[in-house]
Simulated scan of single mutants.
Amino acid sequence: MSDSSRNNFTNPSTFILQGIPGLETAHVWLSIPFCTMYIIAMLGNFSILFIVKMEPSLHEPMYYFLCMLAATDLVLSTSILPKMLSIFWFNSREIDFSACLTQMFFIHCTLLMESGTLTAMAYDRYVAICDPLRHSTILTNSIVAKISLTVLLRGVILTLPCPLLARQWPYCRTNIIPEPYCSHIGVVSLACADIRVSSYYGLFLLLCVMGLDVIFIAVSYIEILRAIFRLPTKDARLKTIGTCGSHFCAMLAFYMPLLFISLVNRLGQKVPLHFHILISNLYVLMPPMLNPIIYGVRTKQIHNRLLRLFTQKGT
């Protein structure tokens, strides 16, 4: 009988998402900030897409990449928040095995796309500041479209092995995932098999793919700073720095929590599990909320268009 139950559990039809272990009694209260983050992310990113579409003066490479970032953030937050809120509000913890792998794919694909989009935006700022006279000829609409397609295909192709590998492992320990969503490591760690291939591939995505993005962004900004400090006047330097401020803040919002999570996972063995889960949730949910706020406040063209939109509605 035990052998039969073990065989039946080898390919589970569903997983159970535990939410935030240790804080189950506070799930309803935790849903308030998470729901607020989701609403802000949806309204903010849809506003970015609408403003760029309706304002001809914003039809430039920088804002096209910003639209791609906004679309990616919408997919990322929608992949996670609705199911998470259903756990917090209705105790709806079950998720179909295929739906779990699909959620895993969209989460990690959009994270890779976000990193790639930030890299493309860094390249745009590099060309705009270091070679401004050739900016319009280097970053034509066709080139921007090709870069965007490359970012999309890179995310899809590199993420696809994660659910494909996860699907082939036998699961005979438990089907309870101690998280509110299906992360790659959260799923494969339940397998009763040697999962080193999955673990190494996840590490490859983190260190080699995102790591290379960070290196490329760092090199771009070193060159940008060198070009800025060669400008003749202080006002010119401050104005040029201002054009990069939004992008720099968005990079910090995306990469700094990732660095913090990596340090906590390796150095904070005594840190409670619920703290790990909360930090991981903030990592994937904060950028979709913060990016439209950062660009809406710090980008003059978007800020002015927003004010004009609300002023017109008010009158």
Rank of each mutant, 00 (worst) to 15 (best):
L190M: 05
L190H: 05
A191K: 08
A191D: 07
A191S: 15
A191E: 10
A191N: 11
C192P: 00
C192G: 05
C192A: 13
C192N: 10
A193H: 15
A193S: 14
A193C: 11
D194S: 07
D194K: 05
D194P: 02
D194Y: 06
I195T: 15
I195F: 09
I195H: 03
I195S: 10
I195A: 11
R196G: 00
R196S: 14
R196K: 03
V197M: 09
V197N: 02
V197F: 06
V197D: 01
V197Y: 02
V197G: 00
S198F: 08
S198A: 15
S198N: 12
S198I: 00
S198D: 11
S198K: 02
S199G: 03
S199W: 04
S199L: 13
Y200I: 03
Y200M: 04
Y200V: 00
Y200G: 00
Y201E: 03
Y201M: 09
Y201Q: 07
G202Q: 10
G202Y: 08
G202T: 13
G202W: 02
G202V: 10
G202K: 03
L203Y: 02
L203S: 08
L203R: 04
L203N: 07
L203Q: 06
L203T: 12
F204E: 06
F204I: 07
F204P: 02
L205C: 14
L205A: 08
L205M: 13
L206P: 00
L206Y: 10
L207W: 00
L207P: 00
L207T: 01
L207A: 05
L207K: 01
C208P: 00
C208G: 00
C208L: 07
V209P: 01
V209Q: 04
V209R: 03
M210Q: 14
M210R: 14
M210C: 13
G211W: 03
G211D: 03
G211F: 02
L212A: 11
L212Q: 03
L212W: 04
L212D: 03
L212R: 02
L212V: 01
D213T: 11
D213V: 01
D213A: 14
D213Q: 11
V214L: 14
V214S: 08
V214R: 05
V214G: 03
I215V: 15
I215F: 10
I215E: 02
I215C: 13
I215S: 06
I215A: 12
F216S: 12
F216V: 13
F216R: 04
I217D: 01
I217F: 05
I217N: 06
I217R: 07
I217Q: 10
A218W: 05
A218C: 07
A218N: 06
V219Y: 12
V219E: 04
V219N: 04
V219M: 12
V219Q: 06
S220E: 05
S220Y: 07
S220G: 11
S220W: 08
S220C: 15
Y221V: 08
Y221K: 10
Y221P: 08
Y221H: 15
Y221I: 10
I222F: 13
I222E: 09
I222C: 10
I222Y: 15
I222A: 10
I222M: 12
I222K: 10
E223Y: 14
E223I: 01
E223T: 03
E223H: 15
I224D: 07
I224F: 11
I224V: 15
L225G: 13
L225A: 15
L225S: 15
L225W: 13
L225E: 13
L225Y: 15
